[in-house]
Simulated scan of single mutants.
Amino acid sequence: MNNLPQHVKIVEVGPRDGLQNEKEAVSARVKIELVDRLSRAGFMNIEAASFVSPKWVPQMATSAEVMAGIERRPGTLYSALTPNMQGFEAALAAGAGEVVIFGSASEAFSHKNINCSIAESIARFEPVARAAREHGLRLRGSVSCAFGCPYQGEVPLEAVADVVGRMRDLGCDEIDIADTIGVSTPRKTQAVMQTAARAFALERISGHFHDTYGQALANIYASLEVGVAIFHSSVAGLGGCPYARGATGNVATEDVLYLLDGLGIQTGVDLQQVVDAGAFISAQLGRKGASRVGNALLAKHAG
């Protein structure tokens, strides 16, 4: 236990990764309120927007309005997903502090999703990476399907190392290693993280775990054991998994905070405020939140 990090950075992805799969439109007003609540809870980094084509992700069509309406907390980085230069220009105009590019560790996933190879997908991000440097914006890279792919199954460790190396060469400040379909288990998680750390500085690697098979918290603990100290999570467990029908998506922020609090690891985030933010967005969506900790604490206070 002594070897675990003393401080962990939580990247809150609910407003972007969490809401993007919602079928019913969520208004900009609600999204702004959610981001503001999360800012007040103390997150250092909030993924607030996505400047992709509204044709592909209609839920993110209000991103510019959201970025214009939020109350910026000093010390909080507001990130936006930018798939191309058009997205980058929009993110820059909206005042994003960090832009996020993404590639897959699985060739099959890359071809199915964006109709090109991994190498081609990374090459497309070169102008975005260059522009981010020129404008002094932080650049984050996300490696999807690093632990398994819905099309090809196993993803070789060398494939993960290769994409991480390519993103490092683009100049990424941080690289997310994502279990997009939530299939990993702790030993495999450690092997993948240690492989990624051979290609990029461990302190700038983050874990992005989906909870499809109920393994996300175990995988986070396994990552802590090998020195990973940045994790992504989503308030109220927002975000369905599009590849596994009826499955949950992102690990719930409340559950991650409860785990870290119990381990004596500092996050700078107020759990109760996150629980309240989760209750707010769940009420807006008309359903119960997916966070076990959130639901337990809400029931306890209601009682």
Rank of each mutant, 00 (worst) to 15 (best):
I32M: 07
D270C: 08
Q194D: 15
Q266D: 10
L34V: 13
L259W: 12
K9Q: 15
R124N: 15
V256P: 02
A159M: 12
V228Q: 04
A197N: 13
A132T: 14
V143K: 04
S121H: 02
C116Y: 00
S234W: 07
L139R: 06
G268T: 09
G239S: 11
G148Q: 05
S53M: 00
Q266V: 06
E158F: 07
F280P: 01
H208D: 07
R138E: 07
E158S: 15
R138P: 08
P15F: 02
G69P: 08
E65G: 02
P5L: 12
R245S: 13
E174V: 11
A25G: 00
G18F: 03
F88A: 02
E225R: 11
T180P: 07
R29W: 01
F125P: 01
Q273T: 14
Q20N: 04
F209L: 12
K23A: 14
T76E: 04
M85S: 07
R287E: 09
L298K: 03
D176N: 13
P5S: 10
V8P: 04
K9R: 13
S79T: 07
V52N: 03
S63A: 06
M67K: 02
T253W: 14
D211V: 02
G148V: 05
V30I: 14
I114T: 07
R187Y: 10
V293D: 04
L238C: 05
S50I: 03
A159P: 04
A49N: 05
Y213F: 15
T195I: 00
K188Q: 10
E158K: 10
G249D: 06
F109W: 07
R37E: 10
H135V: 01
H301W: 14
R133Q: 11
Y78L: 11
G246S: 15
G182S: 09
L81C: 04
S144H: 02
A48C: 12
A132P: 08
A123T: 00
A25S: 09
I101W: 07
V163L: 08
P58C: 11
H208F: 04
T62S: 15
A129F: 02
